[in-house]
Design a binder for these strands. Sequence first.
RNA 1: GUGGGUGUAGCUCAGUCGGUUAGAGCACUUGCUUGACAUGCAAGGGGUCGUUGGUUCAAGUCCAUUCAUCCACACCA
Length: 874
Amino acid sequence: MQKELNKKYNPAEFEDKLYSEWQEKGYFSPSGDKTKPSFSIVMPPPNITGQLHMGHALDNTMQDILTRYKRMCGFNSLWLPGTDHASIATEARIVEAMKKEGVTKDDIGREGFLERAWDWNRVYGGRIIEQLKKIGSSCDWSRTRFTLDEGCSAAVREVFINLYEKELIYRGIRIINWCPHCLTSISDTEVEYEDRAGSFWHIKYPLTDGSGFVYLATTRPETMLGDTAVAVNPKDERYKNLIGKTVTLPLVGRIIPIVADDYVEPEFGTGVVKITPAHDPNDFEVGTRHNLPLENMMTDDAKITDNYPKYAGMDRYEARKAIIKDLEDGGFLVKTEPHEHNVGTCYRCDTTIEPRASLQWFVKMEPLAKPAIEAVKSGDIRFIPERFEKNYLHWMENIRDWCISRQLWWGHRIPAFYCDECEELLVTKEENPTCKCCGKPMRQDPDTLDTWFSSALWPFSTLGWPNKTEDMESFYPTSVLVTAYDIITFWVSRMIFSGLEYTRKKPFSDVLIHGLIRDSQGRKMSKSLGNGIDPLEIIESYGADALRFALTTGNSPGNDMRFFTERVESSRNFANKLWNAARFIMMNIDETASSDSIETASLEDEDKWLLSLYNRLITEVRDNIDRYELGIAVSKLYDFIWDIFCDWYIELVKGRLIDKASKTNMSAQNTLTYVMSNTLKLLHPFMPFITEEIWQTLPHKGESIMISDFPVGNKELDFPHQEENMRVIIDAVRAIRNHRAEMNVPPSRKAKIYIKTDKTEFFTGKEHFFVRLASATQVELADKVFDDNSIQIITDSAEIYIPMSDIIDTAAEKQRLTKELEDTEREIERAQSKLDNADFIGRAPEKVVNAERDKVNRFGIIRDKVKEAIQKLQ
RNA sequence: GUGGGUGUAGCUCAGUCGGUUAGAGCACUUGCUUGACAUGCAAGGGGUCGUUGGUUCAAGUCCAUUCAUCCACACCA
């Protein structure tokens, strides 16, 4: 034997060791065999700010299962890892850290800041990669990428310039979401809305001609400083005469027009709206239609500008109070009522965002969205589960232009240059361009790009695009993208339109969506709640295999899952079971036992039965994984290994194994070894470590289970007759155990059994099973009626008599038999009513009809025998 | 407001193309120092598949209705 398994299953002893062995041997890299089909996954790059959390653990476990499976199936397989610079999140963390040192961005300047950021990446970017290795991720680390590395940056510049030339990127003044804390614009997807209690302030603006007032209401009175009009609906009879007049803005004194616009709903509020084009997206639209000036009344950090000396420097909420007070004092405040409304907040820092007109770069979305919608509608790109297509399509179909410029330093700098002399704008790959008209050096745009701009290119920028690389050739489009549903709009949709636009190909064929891992009460795991469970701690206590198994079992695509430590425990117990089964095998086989083939000619029925079930398992597991039904695949493996292999097969053959002299000893050894070894292969994608450790210990050919061939279904291992035979035997054993348990007969109390059956061929030579598994002392087969003085156990294939009349309670036995008779009759009735139905006979498939006939027959036999048994008792 | 999910055993969840008597883990009851494993073995109890209707030979599964619950998107100043 190669080596022995430790008596105790202790994953910590071998998981890290095996991982480094795999890595050293280069198993994680693609085979490079071009004659084989390719399989590729790009890993959703974790942020360099991050620690591995349960979501990562699930996401990467799923990717690892698929990759290991495909690799074993012979595919030229690549799982490409990497990290994301996470522009805004990382910058915020660094600024925070600097604050503790009393340093600001301005103190150290752009260069100094970027130095710190790269240092940060060196420290924390590597950390998460080490954590990913802990869960067994078999990705090709030699291809590890970073969204801000040389290649990704080149791809970003290429795309930016290309889109600019196609006029799909433009620079302009639009309303954007401004975070006054992060001091940058953010995109619509990065805004989160929450309900907040607020007020509705009703105020009146005097008409300039002194003929009265217009009454309106607002939730943000401080923005009145930026009002450049008041609007009414053109169809609103009440206000028709006001259109074209002007009002004088209270507190400010500015004279502003009353305009007519359909946007105003007469039914809502007073039907009059104050228009603040620089601070509200809808007002901005109205302003554009009516050529209204933009009056920006706030600074970057949401304070009132110097244009309004009375309020200058006040924070927006302070200013609100002051303005309300002044309005009240001036008699302009009519009333205040409570009002709940949705407030947009920054997804990174939770600060209330400020809609703000600002000069930014945008991607024109409509032309890009069209093909992206088509690709999904046509089925070229498939979501699993399908329902997420709707989410995606809904978002794509209502998409607005994407604000991509950020007032941050950590990220891809926008490759646009300005000449301060002649206002020339140049978008170029050059690093220090000069102005075309005046020859002077140009100034680069200080802004960087939205972090998702580079993530959108991830499936191909990581493979070497825009260069025509071998990796692009072999692995693009990628096979499947695995991610959680909360990131479909942020990322998946942007990869789809980017891939289609720049590479003219879809970035991936399948999008496998999983849910979130919640805590045991169903809450999202979050830092603020402190309810997160650290996957690394779980691995330490239970092993990575147990964690992976727990995350996969009972999980189905798209659905959230609660995390219970008990579940990990039961997964660990399963690993322990497998470990001990392997130990048992090791103790009972010789060196000649073989794992790579099986000679079926000399096998016993129970061996063939096991092989037949194992063979079916192969097809089912393959089928389930191919359909991304990982949870189903894994539970089939669990059932087979625990119930079939351990609880039945091993128990069935113990006798043959112990008796080394028996003629059937060797065939039991071979079957055990063969099925165990190959079942390990089926399980390997799910539990890579324990399967490798055991496989290495068993007789095997080849270096590693990781690079062995995934089993293929084999017709020669189908043994329907033996399956039926063993079913009959197992049924009989169960029936005996059941009766004995119900009558509280301890296993130590052995008894003789007599079997009366038509199917003697099923029972002949199987007597020893009853001795071993059903507490029998002696088994007698005979086609005769046995003494009344015994209990009678009835299955569809036999009547079993156990002479124990002295210990049974006749009344209880009669009651039990009566209940059994009733149950049986109910089942017969149910099946018979189907068979009596001409439609059923006519329309149901023959197989189904025969199954029902068979049922009636089987239960009919049982019924008659039970009846007989009851009579005998009387 | 629009769209979507979920509702199955005490708890957490599976349930593939509509087709045997609806499953698992945990929990529970009973028995077992059976030579791999008490992280175990055997036996068992526990379900009107949220409600009501419909389609079908056949519904946990498909359709409609309604209740509960969760989420996404969009928002009226």
